[in-house]
Computed example of a mutant assay.
Amino acid sequence: MYKISEFAELTGLSKETLRYYGEVKLLEPAYIDPVNKYRYYDDGSYFLAVLLVKLKGFGFTIQEMISVMEDESFANLEKLLQQKRNAITLQINDLTTKLKELDEFLESGKENEE
């Protein structure tokens, strides 16, 4: 069992994030001491935390992460990951277009100076 501070260091999630994830039932401690209210996490919690860190890095919202945890099926996770991939692809295309437009605008300003 890991104390919350140890678990935070191990997973890269802050203690505040772990408390919040517990409140929204996303990642609950394996055990809470009834006397001092200390939170303890186990190895199973670690694997869930690693998954949550990955999902957060992919831009998943809290609600999307809750959906993944509640469903527990790979099909749902795969579908959501594919949706995120498609959204990122659209963002890349949009940013590429904006970059090209910006470059063209900069070039047109240089032509007007001459």
Rank of each mutant, 00 (worst) to 15 (best):
F47G: 14
D43W: 10
R39V: 03
Y41H: 01
F58R: 09
K56E: 14
P34K: 12
V50M: 14
K56G: 08
D33S: 07
L55I: 05
L51G: 05
Y40N: 01
Y46E: 09
D43M: 07
R39G: 01
Y41G: 00
S45E: 08
Y41K: 00
Y41W: 06
L27I: 03
Y31L: 07
K37H: 14
L27M: 07
Y41D: 00
G59D: 10
N36I: 11
I32F: 13
G57I: 13
A30K: 08
F60I: 05
F47N: 15
F58I: 07
G59V: 10
K37M: 14
Y41Q: 00
S45Y: 00
E28Y: 03
K56D: 14
G59Q: 08
L52A: 03
I32G: 02
K54A: 15
G57A: 12
K56R: 13
L51Q: 06
K37E: 15
N36P: 02
K37A: 15
P29A: 12
V35W: 07
Y46V: 07
A30M: 05
G44V: 12
G57N: 08
G59K: 08
G59T: 09
R39D: 03
D33N: 10
Y41M: 04
D43S: 08
Y38C: 12
F60K: 01
L51N: 08
F58K: 09
R39K: 09
F47T: 14
Y38E: 06
P29C: 15
G44H: 11
Y41A: 00
G44A: 13
V50H: 04
P29D: 10
G57L: 09
R39Y: 02
L52K: 00
A30P: 00
L51D: 09
Y46N: 07
V35A: 13
G59Y: 13
K54E: 15
L27V: 04
R39S: 02
L52G: 01
F47S: 15
Y41T: 02
D43P: 03
D33Q: 08
K37Q: 15
V50Y: 05
Y40S: 02
R39A: 01
A30N: 06
G44T: 13
R39W: 02
P34Q: 11
V35C: 14
F47E: 15
G57P: 01
Y41C: 02
K37C: 15
F60P: 02
N36M: 09
V35Q: 13
K37D: 15
E28R: 04
L55H: 05
L55A: 02
F60E: 03
Y31I: 06
P34E: 03
F47A: 14
Y41N: 01
Y40M: 06
S45H: 01
Y46D: 10
D42G: 10
V35D: 09
N36Q: 11
N36G: 10
K54H: 15
R39C: 07
D33T: 03
K37Y: 12
F47P: 12
P34C: 09
G44P: 03
L55C: 04
L51W: 04
G57D: 09
L52P: 00
Y38M: 13
V53D: 02
L48Y: 11
G44E: 13
I32T: 06
E28A: 10
F47H: 14
G59A: 13
P34W: 14
A30T: 07
A49H: 00
A49D: 02
F58N: 04
F60L: 08
E28L: 06
N36V: 05
F58P: 04
S45K: 00
F58D: 05
L27A: 03
